[in-house]
């Protein structure tokens, strides 16, 4: 297969970026999207042009390091699929593929397709944990949790922290990311005691880090590679007003 690409190039955070056009050929449908970019980069390097910087690590959809906007959609055309899990068989040769970084005020572009998502860590540092220190834990089976309850907490806990929710929200809100952590912990008995203070601190941290506010458009849920539900946001809001 061959493809026309339109890729956002920006050499550093202060530079003004722009789209540039490239074409790639001899692409196999079994290639992953990132392997297609690898192929492009090998060509660029050999030609003496700067390769495209993009984020990735595990390449199996779990580390959350990858993530670009493909044809206007965070992580590309497939539901519940991160950028690294996409394969070229999902694209048709006719249409140019437009590739740009996740955009949000709180995610400044570092270079080309890479953005700074450290604000997500800062939100976790504010309260995204249960305050148990090494050595304090009681025997595990003294805390009984129904299998359905665990599964519900798990749905929220499966967030990979990629930031697609922020990139796909017109307000650049980080509500889904934050709510997922609050839900994960508050749905478990171990997480009850700190529930209110955790919610308050994390919600305030979202504002402090420069994210926008949630207006319930639901765009985040559609593009979340883990399919995390926006019902968690309602849950977070309920807890916040209670706290």
């Amino acid at each position: 297969m061959k493809f026309e690409l339109k890729i956002w190039r920006q050499p550093n955070p202060d530079a003004k970026g722009a789209f540039q056009k490239y074409s790639v050929k001899d692409i196999s449908p079994d290639m992953s999207f990132l392997e297609m970019l690898d192929t492009l980069n090998e060509e660029l390097i050999l030609k003496g042009d700067p390769p495209v910087a993009f984020d990735h690590d595990c390449r199996e959809g779990i580390c959350g390091q990858c993530g670009v906007v493909i044809n206007g959609r965070a992580h590309g055309p497939l539901d519940q699929t991160s950028t690294c899990q996409l394969h070229m068989r999902s694209f048709s040769e006719e249409k140019t593929i437009t590739i740009e970084p996740f955009r949000a005020a709180a995610f400044p572009v570092k270079k080309d397709l890479k953005v700074d998502r450290s604000a997500l860590d800062s939100i976790i540092a504010e309260g995204g944990f249960i305050s148990v220190e090494t050595g304090q834990a009681p025997e595990a089976n003294t805390i009984l949790i129904g299998s359905e309850q665990v599964e519900e907490a798990f749905d929220a806990a499966s967030c990979i922290g990629c930031g697609a929710c922020v990139a796909s929200c017109k307000n650049a809100s980080v509500a889904l990311f934050t709510a997922a952590k609050i839900s994960h912990l508050s749905k478990l008995p171990q997480g009850q005691l700190e529930r209110n203070s955790r919610t308050k601190r994390m919600v305030q941290a979202m504002d402090k880090m420069g994210f926008g506010s949630c207006s319930n458009t639901g765009a985040c849920e559609v593009e979340c590679p883990q399919g995390i539900s926006i019902s968690h946001i309602a849950h977070m809001n309920k807890l916040y007003f209670r706290s």
């Binding site: 148990v132 009681p138 595990a140 089976n141 009984l144 994960h184």
Partner: peptide, 22 residues
Amino acid sequence: AHLIDQAVAQGVPFAREYSGYL
């Protein structure tokens, strides 16, 4: 054995039986 205790206390959602046990 301690590790499982620690992880559960941190909120790691290990698989459970219907009875609620690990």
